[in-house]
Simulated scan of single mutants.
Amino acid sequence: MHGSADEDERHSTPQTDRRSTLMPRVMASLAIFGLMIGLMIGRLTNPEPSVLQQIEVGDGVLVAWFNDETRLHGEIIDGSVALLFEAEGQAQKGRLKLNGKDVNWRVRLSDKGLLLTLVAARPLRAQWAGSEVDGRWRLEVRLQE
């Protein structure tokens, strides 16, 4: 043996790998590019959550303002009104008048969103309707005894 040349592959020198080292780099680049595109598409399809901006009260009327339309589930339970919003916001409470009598309202955080409850000393009934006004979502709750 005069050297380690691989003339007819009879010697102990391992063969050189003739595969290109460029292929793993191309595959890694494509994987990173695909991940970035997926993150951008996910951001576009998952919009920002609705946020409760303010609550206004009037005589027998409570108006809740949101930055965007929100999903709502409402029930009248034993004479009290409960509305569950798929939104974010701060806990609040207050009082409004209905035919000269007090009605207490309270917004609190729950695991499914915001819960608005309206309670009075007598049974309540309510009707609610939402509409878009000046780029914001307005939900009006009208109370009745």
Rank of each mutant, 00 (worst) to 15 (best):
N67V: 02
R18N: 15
I37M: 04
R18L: 15
D102K: 06
L116S: 10
S50R: 00
E69Y: 12
W128D: 12
R125Y: 13
L98M: 02
F33T: 15
G89R: 01
A82D: 10
L116A: 13
K112A: 15
A87G: 04
L52S: 04
M36G: 08
V57A: 03
N99H: 06
F33M: 14
R71E: 06
W105H: 04
G58M: 05
S20F: 03
E56K: 12
A129D: 14
R122L: 08
L109D: 15
M40V: 15
S80T: 10
L96Y: 03
G113K: 02
A91Q: 11
M36L: 08
L98Q: 01
G58W: 12
L62W: 00
M40Q: 15
L118P: 12
L30M: 06
S29T: 15
R95N: 13
G34D: 07
S50C: 00
M36Y: 08
F85H: 00
T70K: 06
N67P: 04
S20D: 06
L98H: 00
I76V: 01
P123V: 02
P24H: 03
E48N: 13
Q15F: 13
R71H: 06
D78A: 05
E88D: 13
V119Q: 11
G58N: 10
D68G: 09
T117I: 05
R125G: 10
R122E: 14
